[in-house]
Design a protein around this nucleic acid. Structure first.
Lengths: 226, 226
DNA sequence: CCCGTTCGTAACAAAGTCGTCACCGGCTTG
DNA sequence: CAAGCCGGTGACGACTTTGTTACGAACGGG
């Protein structure tokens, strides 16, 4: 079963979370401050980290950033606990890299749901991040190659990244702004119509397999697996 | 104001809770045993349920589980009343799904604080519901997709947003002005009759599932889960 | 340095969507 | 029971959004 690191300086909170997690069959590691959290995260390499925002030694946000910077821990989902709803924006904001949050006081039920959600999400996206197949469309990310009907299709770097991101988030609509942010990595500078043009080129190259690329009018684009 | 279902077989306890809740401006529904609780929960769709652990007919824990299983009531916060501190663990334990508890005998003040806490918490997290199912109607927000009877139904962006907001606030009537504010995001510019037209289009597309869309004459519209 | 590729922008046409209106029937109210 | 209000319905024109094509700038390799 999965291993979870719980970081909070309030013993009561830790105990409540720990109890629920163990009840659900998780292995639990705890830390009471930021320095300990970083050390244990690297040592135990947990599958998920529950991180309180307000902790001594090193602030929760700082811990978050540092964990992301270290290759060993960069991929671990982080669930933030925060007292103030107003802080949510910052927590989920660009560089901080938390994956989800729960505001204090939280119900154990909700916390468990979110933890399970994160673990499930990670499983489904991580396992298929490398090589994805949808019918006769095969997308091999590390190889940077795409085949349709066993025939190699050459994509440019931008086209490949666009297709990859859509495929990794298959089923969920991505707005043009979101795609600009993730594929082009900077916003506002580039016209959103650029996305359309690249989608057009992708569709052209994909031929029949372009059926996987859905337009959601007024919203954005979506990759459909079926 | 919020509607609260109080379940307890001791008339004195019910009366005490009811008195305090009504004093605070809540609407109160009561039930004296598990079977009645389940029935009234589905009928009244309260915003919160205060549930005694030891009740006749169907045990409190069982009621809790059953309420969670039904899509119509799954999201309602449950506050458990329990006589024994030792039972707390089981109550909050994973699958049982209570959100908080108060041990008997309790002070009315504490009970009220916990109720308000739960309601506040729900407000802040409710909007995050990602996927909702009501009978054969499945609304997947991130995918921006709706299926009725396992068949895909295409909605425009506005229709989808309208339906989503109604579904997220199911059970509560939304005035046309409120909907204009939340769906169209600006007020006064647009005619309120526009809402009617979009409701009409939604109903048309939903077919039989349009039964979830209630008109409340002179007030607005409401999504009903059952 | 030149040529070919790739990319972002612009312009236009086609398609889809939206808000309004007018009419009608039913419900409410006095 | 009659008048008035309210919501359902269908139609329509204006507007928005997207697909498509074309073009020039930026980039990179030879």
């Amino acid at each position: 079963m999965a291993k979870i690191l719980v970081v909070d300086d309030e013993p009561d909170a830790v105990e409540l979370v720990e109890f629920n997690l163990k009840n659900a069959g998780f292995e639990v590691v705890t830390a009471a401050d930021g320095a300990e959290a970083l050390k244990k995260a690297r040592a135990a390499l947990p599958d998920l980290i529950v991180l309180d925002l307000m902790i001594p030694e090193v602030d929760g946000l700082e811990v978050c950033k540092l964990l992301r910077r270290d290759a060993a821990t960069a991929g671990i989902p982080i669930l933030m606990l925060t007292a103030k709803a107003a802080e949510i924006d910052r927590v989920l904001g660009l560089e901080l890299g938390a994956d989800d949050y729960v505001t204090k006081p939280f119900s154990p039920r909700e916390l468990m749901l979110r933890i399970k959600g994160l673990l499930r999400r990670r499983e489904t996206t991580e396992a298929k991040a490398e090589r994805m197949q949808f019918g006769d469309l095969v997308l091999d990310v590390p190889a940077h190659s795409l085949t349709v009907n066993n025939k190699r299709v050459e994509l440019t770097a931008t086209e490949f990244k666009l297709l990859t991101i859509l495929a990794q988030r298959r089923g969920r609509v991505q707005s043009r702004d979101q795609l600009l942010k993730d594929v082009w990595e900077y916003d506002n500078v580039i016209d959103t119509r650029t996305v359309d043009t690249h989608m057009r080129r992708l569709r052209e190259k994909l031929g029949k397999a372009a059926k996987h690329l859905d337009t959601v009018r007024g919203v954005g684009y979506r990759f459909v697996a079926g």
